[in-house]
Design a protein around this nucleic acid. Structure first.
Length: 452
DNA sequence: TCATCTGCCACCTTTGAATGGC
DNA sequence: AGCCATTCAAAGGTGGCAGATG
């Protein structure tokens, strides 16, 4: 706990130094709470040791990481990102009917972030429905540059959620950065399923694997009604689509609050920025099997991740300024799952929920995360972004959508900052890594909000 | 020889365009 | 003309499995 206290004091110092006259709520001032959805399903998998298939071309997670978020500033703009961090330092092997340690894990590959396709969006929109990362893909190929999360086979990982406050062009130092790990969603990466129980669970619950069910056609048995067995998958949005819904796990660990890594990168000069960013969780930090690693660091503070006593898994951890890390009792209104997105016609799905080419992003026909992850680097070489800015598509009735017009200064500032810093070689190593383009994927993400 | 990885397959869901009704 | 629901085909996700690899 001392570590936490020390870190929190560092946070306060940092926050104080960046405080400005603008009366805007910084993310680190908010009591943000995150909760993993699909608790029962995750518990079933965890009970038999979750395995996630990784392939060269990338494989989606099942169950997927779907979280509910509360406590954000409804009018604040946030970017949601997810990556994977080692759960422990072991490598595993399957031995007949159980997993056992088979040695030391290989060095973790510098993180590649999956940026939620709806990023950036208003806090109101993030809190309205569960946020699903079902499009996140895992791979064992380090050669890909398509935004896949690279993992080592036979090693255990846990997802980590980052909530980054979008920068304010008028006040760059503002903008916090929150980091949550999801130990309940820890899994062993495999190239082929080892435990047949896992396979069975996946087949029984994943709609894509319906064909392998006992009553599937390929099983050469009479086809029965699947209605009761199937989980309810709405053809809905990137906010919420895959996976069983309606359950809430109280198992997300609040990890840290830190300055917005993007902003910090831009505001810190020289190698300090690289070092600073690389210690902000944008580089691998070995997690402890029974503890938490606090990733937050500050230029004037200790750079190393610090190990903290493992909290109980059940409560929700939230934080407020001055109360970071404080354990809060579960609140009644937090017991209720957020509503699922309405089942509307695909023609009616708001642009922010489903990146349809027929909507505002004409000319941007791919999911944003795909765009940004595939086009990494182009922003660097092209200088300041050019092109026509998209018009705002904010649904005043639902509150969904993103007012892109308002973000123009933000985008310009952000992109310019990335470009300028990279031209000076500030972000060329470590943080970005070859072919990863984490930082630039985000900038490219913004960049692709514009029509070319 | 063994553990692990790769590529292909059939089956299934999701997605988006086309179509037609109101 | 515009909105909406339905239909259909293409795209893509799924685990199984045989063979390849180290």
């Amino acid at each position: 706990m001392n570590n936490i206290s020390n870190n929190l004091s560092a946070i306060c110092q940092c926050k104080d130094s960046s405080r400005t006259v603008r009366d805007e709520t910084e993310i680190s001032d908010l009591e943000v709470r995150v909760s993993l959805q699909g608790r029962e399903l995750w518990e079933q998998f965890r009970g038999i040791r979750t395995e996630m298939l990784i392939t060269k071309t990338g494989r989606r997670m099942f169950p997927c990481c779907k979280v509910t978020v509360t406590g954000l500033n409804p009018r604040g703009m946030y970017v949601f990102m997810m990556d994977m961090v080692p759960f422990d330092e072991n490598k595993y092997k399957w031995s007949t009917d159980h997993w056992e340690v088979s040695g030391m894990a290989e060095p973790h590959i510098p993180n590649r972030f999956f940026i939620h396709p709806d990023s950036p969006s208003l806090g109101k929109r993030w809190m309205q429905y569960p946020v699903s990362f079902h499009k996140l893909k895992l791979t064992n190929s380090t050669l890909n540059s398509n935004g896949l999360v690279v993992l080592h086979s036979m090693q255990k990982y846990q997802p980590r959620l980052h909530i980054v406050q979008s920068p304010d062009p008028h006040n760059p130092p503002l903008g916090g950065y929150l980091c949550f790990t999801l130990p309940q969603a820890a899994f062993i990466a495999v190239t082929a399923y080892q435990n047949s129980e896992i396979t069975k669970l996946k087949i029984d619950n994943n709609p894509f694997a319906k064909g392998f069910r006992d009553n599937g056609l390929n099983r050469k048995r009479p086809v029965e009604s699947d209605d009761e067995a199937d989980i309810n998958i709405s053809r809905s949005s990137s906010v919420d689509s895959h996976g069983a819904a309606g359950h809430r796990a109280h198992d997300i660990m609040f990890l840290s609050v830190a300055p917005n890594p993007l902003i910090s990168a831009f505001m810190n000069q020289g190698a300090t920025a690289v070092h600073y960013l690389s210690t902000l969780g944008f580089r691998s930090l070995p997690a402890q099997s029974s503890g938490l690693v606090v990733h937050h660091t500050f230029p004037q503070a200790d750079y190393q991740g610090q190990r903290c006593p493992a909290p109980h898994l059940s409560p929700i951890y939230s934080h407020t300024s001055g109360h970071q890390g404080q354990r809060h009792p579960q609140q009644a209104d937090f017991d209720c799952p957020l509503p699922l997105p309405p089942k509307v016609s695909r023609m009616n799905i708001p642009e922010s929920l489903e990146m349809s080419p027929s909507h505002s992003l004409s000319g941007c026909h791919r999911p944003l995360n795909d765009i940004l992850n595939r086009n990494y680097g182009s922003a660097v070489h092209s200088g300041r972004p050019q092109g026509k800015l998209l018009q705002a598509h904010y649904d005043s009735r639902t509150g969904l959508g993103v007012d892109r017009e308002l973000r123009q200064p933000q985008l310009d500032w952000l992109l310019f900052s990335v470009t300028e810093h990279n031209q000076h070689g500030l972000l060329g190593n470590g943080f970005l890594g070859e072919g990863t383009g984490n930082c630039f994927t985000l900038s490219q993400h913004f960049n692709n909000l514009r029509c070319k």
